[in-house]
Write a protein that binds this DNA or RNA. Structure first.
Lengths: 338, 338
DNA sequence: ACTGGCAGTTGCCCCCGGCGAGTGCCAGCA
DNA sequence: TGCTGGCACTCGCCGGGGGCAACTGCCAGT
C-alpha cells in the first residue's frame, strides 16, 4: 500500500534532516535508506506529502524540509522509541543521587538534561502540595514586623515577613506558636491552611486582629506555592550550537527564557503524565516559533511540577523524549523519598 | 601641545567607534568633531597612536579601531562623567523601592540594570557578614536527620539538613536549642560561629559526639555564606543585540554566564569601592575576550557583594559606569535599611 | 608644526557564467 | 493502477573579475 510507504518516506525525511540539517532530496534519501523503489517514485510521494502540508521546499532546486505538521505526525505516529544507553542512565543516576538538597536536585537535573540533550533544559521547582508541615516558627523582628517560617517535610523552608499593626508581646507570640504548630504539624499544606482558620477562635477577642493577620500570612505562605513559581534554566550556551541559521532566532528565545511567566505557562500546560511535545507555534509563544519543547511532569503530585528541554524543531525527538522521561523519573523518585 | 591633541583624537575615535560600530577614518572623524586641524595631521597622530598600541586597523584600507589598551586609557583618563538623566534615576528608584524582599531587590536590580545599559546584568546576592543571628531552630526529621535553620536579622533564612549517628531525644534537642540560641542570638554571624565552639563544653560527655556534629553544621551554616555564592543574571537577550560580528563570541559568553564560579571570581575581584572596569583579557576569562565588565561593590559590608554589567568592549563606558554606580548606590541604601 | 595633494593599497560590492542538485512530467512497462 | 527511467527545466551556490571607494602614508610646501 502506497500510503504506508509515504509515511516511511516522511519518517526518512525527518530523520535525515535532523541528522544533516540540510534539505533532503530524493536521491540522498535513497542512499541512506533501503526503500525498494526508484527516485521517481519518491518524488511523487514527496509531491503528495508536500501537498498535504507535511514537508516543504525552501526553494525550487532544493530538497524537502519537514513542516511543523510533519514533525507532529512524526512524533505522534512515526518515531520509534530510542531507549537511553546504560551509560547514560548511570550518568543520570549517579549525578542526581549526589544531590544534598531539594535545590541541589533541581540544579543538577538542569545540568544533566542540558548535557544529555545538548539543548536548553528547564526544570520547575517541585510542588509542595503533597508535603506536610514539619514546623512553624514565628520570629518577631523590629518595628512590629514578624517573620513567619514554615518548614515542610520535604526540607523546604518557606518564609515571609509581615507588617503588623502593633508589636505582640512575648506571651502572645509563644501562645500563637504553640497553637499554630499544634494545629498544623503533620498536615498537608492545603489542610493545614484550613485548620488555621479554626485555630483563630481560641484566642481572646482583643487579640483577634493581630492573630488574624498572622494566621492569614501563614495561610498564604502555605498555599502560595512560591516554589512552583520558580524555574531553573540551563544549557543556554547550546543555543549557539543550534546552527548559524538560528542566529536570527536566538534573541527571542533568550527573551522568552528570561520571562519566567512564559516558561511557567509552557510547563504548566503539560498536564498529562508522560512526555509531551510542543512544536513551533504549538508553544503559543511567538519567540519560540523555531523551537520545540519536550516536557514531562515529575513526581506523584497531581497539580505537580514539570521539567523539559527546549531545542530546535529539527531535534532528535526520540532521544530527547527518552532523556526527558528518564530524568523526570529519577527526579520524581528522589523527591518522593523525602 | 601635540600630545594633548593626540589624546583628544583617541577620545574621538573611541566615541565614534562606540557610536557607529565601524572603523573610523581621519575624514569621518573631522566631520563629527571640531578639532581645528586637517585630516593629514590627524593621520599623523593616528599613526603614532597605533605605534603606541592604542588603536589598530583591521585591514590597510580601513579606519582605526581602539585596542584594549586604547579603551583602558579612555576609561582611566579620557572619559567624562555622564550623569544619568533624572528620568533614569527616578526609574531606578521607583522600580527598586517596590521590592518586598531581599531576593526581590536582587531580581529587580538585575532587570533595571539590564534595561538601563542594554547589556547583561549580574548581581551577587548580598553578603550576610554584617547580619546578626535572629533565631536558631533545630528540627528533628526522620532517620536521625536534623534540619538546622538560622534566621538572620536581614530576614534571610539559611538552612541545612544533616545526618546524625543517632536520633537525639527531645530533651537534648530542647536543651541544645536553648543553649545555642542563647549563645548566638544578636551576634554577627562570624562571632556567633566562635561562640558556638565554647557552648559545646556545657554538655555531658556522652552527648558530645552528637552535639559536636550539630554545632559544626550550624557553624558551617553561619560562615559558609551561601548567599554570596549566588548570583542573578539578566538581560542575556541583549547579547544578540551586540551586533552580528558577535555571533562568534556569543557561545563562550553564554558558557561563562552559566559558570557561577567564573562570575563570582569576576565580581569578587572588584575589591576597591566605586565602579571598576575590566576590559577584554583583563577579565582573565578566555570566553570574555571581546567583553568588558563594569562592576561595583554595594552596601557597606566590607568583604561585600558586588553587581555589574557585561557588555562588548565597544560599549558606552561613561553611561554604563554611571548606571552601575547609581544602581549600586540605591541597592546599598535599600539593604542597609533592614 | 601643520597642510594639501597624490599615489598606493585593499576590502567590498555587484555582476556574471558555469555547475550541480533536485524537481516535475511524461511515456512506457508490469 | 502503480512504478520506473529519462529528459528538460529551474534555481541557488560558488568563484572570478572589474569598478569603486575608503583610507593610508609620504612628501613637498608654508
Amino acid at each position: 500500500m502506497a500510503d504506508d510507504r509515504r509515511l516511511d518516506v516522511l519518517r526518512a525525511i525527518v530523520e535525515d534532516y535532523v541528522a544533516t540539517h540540510e534539505p533532503v532530496g530524493s536521491r540522498s534519501l535513497l542512499d541512506r535508506h533501503q526503500l525498494g523503489v526508484s527516485p521517481a517514485t519518491i518524488r511523487n510521494d514527496m509531491a503528495i506529502l508536500e501537498e498535504e502540508g507535511y514537508i516543504s521546499q525552501p526553494h525550487t532546486s532544493a530538497g524537502r524540509i519537514p513542516t511543523e505538521k510533519g514533525y507532529r505526525i512524526f512524533v505522534d505516529r512515526l518515531a520509534t522509541v530510542k531507549p537511553l544507553s546504560a551509560a547514560e542512565r548511570r550518568a543520570i543516576e549517579t549525578f542526581l543521587s549526589g544531590a544534598v538538597d531539594v535545590d541541589d536536585v533541581v540544579q543538577r537535573s538542569v545540568r544533566v538534561l542540558a548535557q544529555l540533550t545538548n539543548q536548553i533544559a528547564i526544570v520547575q521547582y517541585p510542588s509542595l502540595s503533597l508535603a506536610t508541615v514539619r514546623h512553624v516558627e514565628l520570629v518577631p523582628l523590629d518595628n512590629a514586623r514578624m517573620l513567619v517560617v514554615v518548614i515542610t517535610s520535604s526540607g523546604r523552608v518557606e518564609q515571609r515577613i509581615i507588617e503588623l499593626e502593633s508589636t505582640p508581646d512575648e506571651a502572645l507570640v509563644g501562645q500563637l506558636r504553640t497553637r499554630l504548630t499544634g494545629a498544623t504539624v503533620g498536615q498537608r499544606l492545603g489542610e493545614a491552611s484550613v485548620r488555621l482558620a479554626e485555630a483563630i477562635d481560641g484566642f481572646a477577642p482583643r487579640h483577634r486582629p493581630i492573630v488574624t493577620s498572622i494566621v492569614s500570612a501563614l495561610s498564604h505562605t502555605l498555599t502560595s506555592e512560591r516554589s512552583t513559581e520558580r524555574i531553573a534554566v540551563g544549557g543556554t550556551a547550546n543555543l549557539a550550537r543550534f546552527g548559524h541559521d538560528f542566529d536570527q532566532a536566538i534573541q527571542p528565545v533568550l527573551e522568552a527564557l528570561e520571562e519566567q511567566v512564559v516558561l511557567l505557562k509552557l510547563l504548566g500546560e503539560a498536564a498529562a503524565p508522560g512526555p509531551q511535545v510542543r512544536i513551533g507555534s504549538e508553544t503559543g509563544t511567538e519567540g519560540l516559533a523555531s523551537m520545540a519543547l519536550v516536557s514531562s511532569t515529575y513526581g506523584a503530585s497531581e497539580g505537580g511540577s514539570a521539567l523539559g528541554t527546549l531545542g530546535p524543531t529539527r531535534m532528535d525527538y526520540p532521544g530527547t523524549i527518552a532523556a526527558v522521561a528518564a530524568v523526570a523519573r529519577y527526579v520524581g523518585r528522589l523527591l518522593n523519598e523525602d
